[in-house]
Design a protein around this nucleic acid. Structure first.
Lengths: 153, 153
DNA sequence: CGTATTTACTTTATATCTAAAATAGTAATC
DNA sequence: GATTACTATTTTAGATATAAAGTAAATACG
């Protein structure tokens, strides 16, 4: 069947494009600021959360990673003084992460450059084309894979 | 500017979709066959190469990973008898990896199911829509990020 | 030829990631 | 209020990635 091949090609292209972009962003972030995409994502989530910060669980959810990963990625940010870790006084099991002044400043710089990189990478596409791309992406269903059965052929 | 935000959203959607799909495929491959996507990719490249196999360098190139990664990902496949490593008699520095009979068999099974999962994940898109998606993806330029300058704003 | 350079791959040190075990605090029940 | 169960996070073990150092074979050059 022809559809099969087209879907497989779509999957390969999707993977290659996103990985290429991710690698480029990561390389640039590291060389400019000494921080990975993973750390940038933490800073971004905390920046949005503002002075209240985020509990570890909420951060895990937003980053779409495991709970262990959150602990590990925040560690160097705390060491470098970009993030402060406190304990929730109302529930002493819970960790709360907040951006420090220094963290805010550095993130603002990072976010500015990052935005420009993405704009440049997407420069060949019009806003309308990006909307189309996003609509098509939204119709791809990872959940279908978990449900997929052999007999569906 | 509005374009900025649309590009950023496109990037976030692209990343979320490809990572979601990748995680789903990886989870399914592991539970069905006990092998990761990384190993599946090695098997796939070797299957295509046939009886001649591939040198480590060629494998590295096709997988788009570092040379060290190739050594490490092939190791368990060799241990499990899916891949055989030999030395090129014409250039004894070079390693040649070939699928074993067992590796071929297992890969054929994996590839069959994998194809169905992808078809299911893309089921909501027509072949024409997938073509459109692929065309749009091809216009995204990771290389632009390496060239991007602050003053380009 | 014999030394120097290059090439092909592996090893090592880090950085993420996951899943699962461990830790510690909270809530629920008798 | 002691025991039990649950919840939030950290720690650990293992997989995969990179970059850079190490090893060994091939090539180049005087």
């Amino acid at each position: 069947m022809n559809d099969d091949r087209e879907a497989l090609r779509g999957w390969l292209d999707l993977l290659a494009t996103s990985q290429g972009l991710k690698k480029a962003v990561d390389t640039r972030l590291r060389s400019r600021f000494g921080h990975s995409i993973a750390r940038f994502d933490v800073l971004s989530a905390l920046d949005r959360a503002g002075v209240a910060g985020l509990r570890a669980g909420a951060l895990t959810e937003r980053l779409m990673v495991s709970d262990g990963a959150t602990t590990q990625v925040t560690a160097p940010l705390i060491r470098d003084g970009l993030v402060k870790r406190t304990v929730d006084p109302d529930d002493r099991r819970a960790a709360i992460f907040v951006l420090t002044r220094k963290g805010e400043k550095i993130f603002a710089e990072m976010a500015g450059e990052h935005r420009q990189w993405i704009v440049d990478a997407f420069a060949a596409l019009s806003p309308a084309q990006i909307k189309t791309l996003r609509r098509l992406l939204s119709q791809i269903s990872p959940a279908a894979i978990a449900r997929s059965r052999k007999d569906a052929a």
